[in-house]
């Protein structure tokens, strides 16, 4: 069983949802985000989503776009993000499963095979390429990830057809990331009413755990989603919090509030 599958299995045994926080690596600086990921672990994260900044993030809203811009200005290339993961493992002793959340082009430019080898070597457990659906992932990408024991994570969305759900079930492992609503990442006022029905149906059809993200930002929303899903992903709200907190302690407190809401 992969580290990711194990983390979800443990949460299930403890009858709670996994808390999956996301931050863009390199925001505000590479060193700063190393500190932030470590703080998230302290706050009670079950998995970490490490965002690889990209120049043209078409699936992201204003908050994560701006974070990616800051990170790129700091020189946070994919190579350096892998270095950061490696330091989280070796210097900070972080044991949590780590999922890289990236656009496909940086991985493509790095070389898929080389990327998989280095990512696994640095301590990455799974990879989600937001603009790489299973049909384009089939072949060298999936093979490379499997060869290096990395979980390929895929998205599903309210627009996904039954055939697509099946395709993701076949290609993916670790967990499935369910996009809570059509749209880009970012904080939203409320959770859609249909979400409960959709996630229930999805969990029936899939053996993989289902984590829900996009637009989940407040403790209330986390609580609502945690009742439905195997995991809750919080991104933009944490990016905003990290920018607004003066100390590590303040950030840990914020993140802990969200982590507790998932329980």
């Amino acid at each position: 069983m992969s580290a990711i599958a194990e983390a979800f299995a443990r949460c299930r045994r403890e009858k709670r949802a996994a808390f999956v926080p996301f931050l863009v690596a390199g925001d505000p600086t590479l060193q700063g985000s190393e500190e932030l990921y470590d703080a998230l672990a302290e706050a009670g994260a079950d998995l970490l989503e490490v965002g690889v900044p990209f120049s043209d993030p078409i699936a992201d809203g204003a908050t994560i776009q701006a974070a990616a811009q800051r990170a790129l200005a700091e020189g946070a290339t994919l190579e350096r993000v892998l270095g950061l993961v490696s330091r989280l493992r070796s210097e900070r002793g972080l044991r949590l499963p780590i999922v890289l959340f990236s656009y496909f082009n940086p991985i493509h430019a790095y070389g898929v095979e080389r990327f998989a080898e280095h990512a696994a070597g640095c301590g990455v457990d799974g990879v989600l390429a937001v603009d790489l659906p299973p049909e384009e992932a089939a072949g060298s990408y999936l093979e490379a990830l499997r060869r290096h024991a990395l979980d390929p994570i895929f998205l599903l969305a309210p627009t996904s057809t039954a055939a697509r759900v099946k395709q993701v079930a076949r290609a993916g492992s670790g967990f499935v990331y369910y996009v809570s609503r059509a749209g880009v990442t970012g904080e939203r006022g409320s959770v859609r009413r249909e979400l409960a029905k959709e996630v229930r149906a999805l969990r029936k059809r899939l053996r993989l755990p289902v984590a829900v993200g996009f637009g989940v930002s407040t403790p209330e929303q986390v609580r609502a989603v945690a009742k439905l899903a195997d995991g809750v992903v919080v991104g933009s709200a944490l990016v905003t919090a990290a920018g607004g907190c003066r100390s590590r302690k303040a950030f840990v407190a914020k993140a802990r509030e969200l982590a507790r809401a998932a329980r």
Binding site: D131, F154, L155, A157, T159, T161, R164
Partner: peptide, 10 residues
């Protein structure tokens, strides 16, 4: 090909 976020695939 079709390198798009899942929401757009269907």
């Amino acid at each position: 090909g079709r390198f798009a976020p899942e929401t757009l695939m269907a």
